[in-house]
Amino acid sequence: MNGPAINEEFLQQLETLQTIVKNNVAGLFGGNHQSKTFGSSCEFADYRDYIAGDDITKIDWNAYARFEKLYLKLYLDERQLHTRIYIDASRSMGYGKGGKDIQAIRTAAALTYLSINEMDKVSVYVIHGDKIEELFTGLLGKDAYFAAIDKFNGIVFDGDCRISDAILPSTVGYGDGLSIIISDFLTDNNFEDAIDYLAGKKRDILCVQILSAEELNPTARGKMHFFDSEATSKYYRKNINKDILAAYKAAVEYSTGRVRDFCHSREADYMLVPANESLYKVFFDKLVGEGVLK
């Protein structure tokens, strides 16, 4: 695998990045992300008339001296986000030497650290079939991160993955942060409903599509009989020649384009990550370039 693995040096580099939040932050706890609601941060926002019962410590006495009327100073609120990461743990992600599983875990771990660094809560879920399994929830603080990171190694990539069926029944929060779906999206199963659902919950959405180098540029030639790792009943049998390779390239373009276009139509972010690409490039080039991070 190219590029740096997750190590202390890379994590320190990650600390220079910051998540760009698009939706209004509606977290329960104070945090590091500015909210559009008024709160108790140092950031002045506006004045309003004093109403009995208001905190008198926030009355602007300078304004009272000038206008002889009580005005209350309003400040912007800063909230804590809850980043929820969904990892596709189907067999297609982990089969063979493609390295999609490793890339998915590394990406998830890096994103987790990024959120932790911003004093956000992070929950990581693993999707098996139509079920969501919690890897850990509400993780907060670097100590907790380093204590929980080993859990990533416990993810078993097996079975299939039905993203919408898994996410729709789950608790996804409302307007309180970023939802990240990491998958290869190589399925006819519905994923659009999940994105619609998350968008409806006012969550920022990032879809990370991970494809192996072999899937992007297949090297197989001649008469091949491919079996699907998730279901051997699915197979593909052909003499792979130039025509078929051209059609395959078109299929890759179509498949990635379909996910990308749908995400963009829902104002969700999308990023194609080759399994052999370095994390540094993924985070510092692509995510920054896409405007997900800054």
Binding site: G96, E215, H225, F226
Partner: peptide
């Protein structure tokens, strides 16, 4: 040549 691949979806 038989081969199991992660997904036949793209093919």
């Amino acid at each position: 040549t038989e081969q199991v691949i992660s997904s036949t979806y793209l093919w």
